[in-house]
Structures are given as structure tokens and as C-alpha cells.
């Protein structure tokens, strides 16, 4: 076990932990935002630069500060390391700059985008960005395309986090989807417009932090804040069958994986609860699901408007009443 200090809070973590994960163990405001790192997908991270932190002292042995800001998702902690996130002016200023870069080519079409309301880029911009844009150049644009029957790719909105590429690599047996070209010209695409119809490819919709990959079966059906997310399970031989069904009245509008507070798929005993495409796209009928109850939604989220969790009467029962 080694000791690190993040924003003046000390914690003991195992060797080999990244700064980001150490911060997540503390939780709360010290956790840097992460757009490309995804805990359930090994190899992700290091692309978006939103998780930059200042390392004020490298370790007890060598307490010199690191000259540049470090990516917390891919930097491992050292014994005696002192990290500054929220307490560092430099980090705050740099993060605003990173947001500006991520938005440089972004179309800002939130009113049209299905991801609005549950979009990591919106949250990032809201919390760390500047109010106005200074960008005057022509933005690069693409036509939205269908990759397969179920997924819409809107390349304009992509921030090139490569999470979906890792999904294709790690969850599907035959990858037909990846990144083309380099640098500023990079675009996510499929192998010559090949349809994506692998059993687990639907998960790339959930890992995509923005609205670049969206569910065609739920396209423009409603906005997330009008839907009621419910925890539900179903019998499935291919996947865990643990999902969140987004209901509008008695209708199921969309099905997604269960996500933790960082927007990453929930893990049970270290196993990510991915959903197969059949559960995700074809079971749009309540009778196919066993509803466990309302999913907890943070009250700061717009989704919590009109979303009521029934209080369990047994939870608050005074102790002296039998």
C-alpha cells in the first residue's frame, strides 16, 4: 500500500493504481472528469486530456513537481505523491482549454441530439467550460450514417475517445468498425459501410460519451427527461439480462446497460454487465422484462424531473414499531 495526497486528502491505495482511480476512491469533488477512460474496457484512456491534474510532488524519494500536467487516467501513483485537481488554478484553466478544443468541431446541436440530458460533454462543458465560443472557422461536417439496423453514427459529434473501437475490439468477435485517417482528419467508420451486427456491438452506444453513436430504435422518440428509468431484468442466455428500461407510460422506449455515477457500465464481481443486442433492441415490451423498481437518479440530473422513486415504507419505519 502506498500513500497519495489528492487535493489535501490522504488515501492509501495499492501500487499500480492510477491517479484517477485513487481519486475515485476518495470520491466527490476531487475526481477529475474523464471522457475517454472507461473502467470496464482495458486500454482506454489517454486520448481526451480532460483528466489532466497537477502533480506537485512526484514521490517521497523525488519530491520534485512534474513540470507538465499529467493525464490522471494513465499515470500511476507513487508513494508520497501530492496531486492537485480542484485546488490548482492551472488545472482549472487547462481544463477549460481542453473543453474548448473538444468543442472546436462540435456542432452544438443538443436540441436535436438524443444524448442531450445524459451527455458527458454537456456536463463537462457546463462544469468546466467557458460561456462563449471563440471559434470562427468552418467546422468539419459529415452526413449522419446508419451503421447497421440499430446504430446511427453522427460523426460531427464524435470527440474521438476511441471507446467504441475498444468495444468493437474486446466485445465482438469480428471487428468491422474502427478509426480511419489520422490527426484532425480522423473519423470513426465501419469497414466500407459494412453493417454492424455483432451480438454485443450495441454497447458502443452506451460507452459513447456523446451523441455520436445513438440507438436507431429510439431515435427522436422522446427526450430522456420525459422517460422513467426502471431497473429491470430478463432471462437471457447471452448476457447478464440486467438492464435499465426507459419507460414512457407503459411503453419501453429504450433499453440501456446499468451505469454507475461516472456513466460507466456497472460491474458485478469485476464483470461488466454488458447487454446483448437482442435485449437492447428487440425487447421493447414490458411483458418481456421483470421490473425491479425505479432506478435511482441523482437529483441534480435533469432526468430526475418527473421521476419519482417510491419510498420503501419499511426504510423509514421507526425502530420501536414492530
Amino acid at each position: 500500500m502506498i500513500k497519495v495526497t489528492i487535493d489535501d486528502i490522504e488515501i492509501e491505495v495499492e501500487e499500480g493504481t492510477t491517479i484517477l482511480n485513487a481519486a475515485r476512491m476518495i470520491g466527490g469533488d476531487v475526481v477529475p472528469p474523464a471522457m475517454c477512460y472507461y473502467s470496464a474496457l482495458p486500454g482506454t484512456g489517454g486520448k481526451c486530456r480532460t483528466c489532466l491534474v497537477e502533480v506537485a510532488a512526484g514521490s517521497t524519494k523525488d519530491p520534485r513537481p512534474m513540470p507538465k500536467l499529467m493525464v490522471s487516467c494513465s499515470t500511476q501513483v507513487m508513494d508520497g505523491m501530492i496531486v492537485k485537481n480542484k485546488t490548482s488554478e492551472r488545472v482549472i484553466e487547462n481544463r477549460a482549454g481542453v473543453v474548448e478544443f473538444l468543442l472546436a468541431n462540435h456542432p452544438l446541436d443538443c436540441p436535436v441530439c438524443d444524448q442531450a440530458g445524459e451527455c458527458d460533454l454537456q456536463n463537462l462543458g457546463f462544469e468546466n467550460g467557458k460561456e462563449a465560443t471563440r471559434y470562427e472557422e468552418e467546422r468539419r461536417t459529415f452526413e449522419p450514417i446508419d451503421i447497421g439496423d440499430h446504430i446511427k453514427l453522427n460523426m460531427n459529434r464524435c470527440i474521438l475517445c476511441y471507446r467504441c473501437v475498444h468495444v468493437a475490439n474486446q466485445l465482438t468477435d469480428q471487428r468491422v468498425h474502427g478509426a480511419l485517417h489520422r490527426g484532425d482528419h480522423t473519423e470513426i467508420s465501419t469497414y466500407i459501410e459494412k453493417a454492424i451486427d455483432n451480438d454485443f456491438s450495441g454497447n458502443m452506444i452506451d460507452v459513447c460519451p456523446v451523441g455520436a453513436l445513438t440507438d436507431r430504435t429510439a431515435r427522436f422518440k422522446s427526450r430522456v427527461w420525459f422517460l422513467n428509468p426502471m431497473n429491470a431484468t430478463c432471462e437471457c442466455t447471452k448476457c447478464s439480462g440486467k438492464a435499465v428500461v426507459w419507460m414512457f407510460g407503459k411503453e419501453v422506449y429504450k433499453v440501456t446497460t446499468r451505469q454507475d455515477k461516472y456513466g460507466e457500465v456497472e460491474q458485478v464481481d469485476g464483470k461488466p454487465q454488458w447487454l446483448c443486442d437482442e435485449c437492447r433492441f428487440d425487447k421493447k415490451d414490458v411483458s418481456k422484462w421483470t421490473i425491479e423498481g425505479a432506478r435511482h437518479i441523482d437529483r441534480h440530473s435533469v432526468i430526475s424531473q418527473g421521476h419519482y422513486e417510491k419510498p420503501n415504507p419499511l426504510d423509514n419505519k421507526p425502530k420501536n414499531i414492530k
Binding site: C110, P111, V112, A116, R219, F220, K221, S222, R223, W225, F226, V302, Q305
Partner: peptide, 22 residues
């Protein structure tokens, strides 16, 4: 109007409803 639903979520009287289409 692009049926973004922001008016409906802002409306304190819940007077607005909409259905979007492509």
C-alpha cells in the same frame, strides 16, 4: 421548432406536450 422539449421541461404548469419526428 426542433422538438427539443426544453419548453416543456421549463413549463411550471406542464402545459406543453410534443411528439418529435425525423
Amino acid at each position: 421548432c426542433t422538438a427539443c422539449g426544453l419548453c416543456a421541461v421549463a413549463c411550471p404548469a406542464e402545459a406543453i406536450t410534443m411528439v418529435a419526428n425525423e
